[in-house]
């Protein structure tokens, strides 16, 4: 798959994680849905699954939280997000001149003191990195390192939980993410692992 497509798909995923669906987005998704996705329900699902901590079906979209997810019986347990939980990404963001606050995100996500490792922020950053990688070969190792450091198994869990949900919208998002994660890792293998194997 061409890298430009990967960058754009990554940006699309970021968009879906950062803001509620609008008619244009739902129209674009229509071809992938098994049944029509009703807009009001999809918006509610966006908030319930991705924004509201206490909705009962919330899946925290934060890398540091997902990394500490624990299965207890039939349920997954997530620790509370910490406002500074994603501060390790600050160096990346600063070096790239990337400001998460500049993204078009729902106020529930964009408010001050939100963790920097929201998957929407992470994927928006990565999309730009991938766009560079398309034009500049030296960006490829950077992208590979970033993917390896940031998109760990917790993000697969996140995608799987969404994909398995009863919400048509969340399910589509989860399935798309799972697909994207697989393609990203295939295209940009972990440099350390690759070095070990060689």
């Amino acid at each position: 798959m061409p890298e430009a497509g990967l960058a754009e798909r990554t940006a699309a995923a970021a968009r879906m994680l950062l803001a509620p669906p609008d008619p244009a987005l739902l129209a674009a998704l229509a071809g992938a849905a098994e049944a029509p996705v009703e807009e009001e329900q999809a918006r509610q699902d966006f908030y319930d699954f991705l924004c509201v901590l206490q909705s009962g079906c919330y899946v925290p979209p934060y890398v540091h939280v997902l990394a500490r997810a624990e299965r207890k019986g039939e349920y997954w347990h997530f620790p509370p997000p910490r406002f500074d939980g994603g501060d390790g990404l600050r160096l990346w963001y600063d070096a790239g001149g990337f400001d998460p606050a500049s993204l078009a995100a729902d106020p529930l996500i964009a408010g001050a003191n939100r963790p920097l490792d929201h998957l929407g922020f992470v994927l928006a950053f990565l999309a730009r990195l991938l766009a560079d990688a398309e034009r500049q070969p030296e960006a490829r190792p950077l992208a590979a390192t970033f993917i390896a450091q940031t998109l760990g198994p917790g993000t697969d869990l996140f995608a799987d939980l969404l994909a398995g949900s009863e919400s048509p919208y969340a399910s589509l998002l989860g399935r798309g993410l799972a697909e994207l994660l697989g393609d990203l890792r295939a295209e940009f293998p972990d440099p350390e692992q690759a070095a070990e194997e060689s």
Binding site: G5, A7, E8, R9, T10, A11, A12, A13, A14, R15, M16, L18, A24, L25, A27, A28, L29, G31, A32, L103, A104, G120, L123, A124, A127, R128, L130, A131, G176
Partner: peptide, 11 residues
């Protein structure tokens, strides 16, 4: 599909 519709967080 979403990307093809020009929807994304910027690339």
């Amino acid at each position: 599909l979403v990307a093809a519709a020009g929807i994304g967080a910027g690339t």
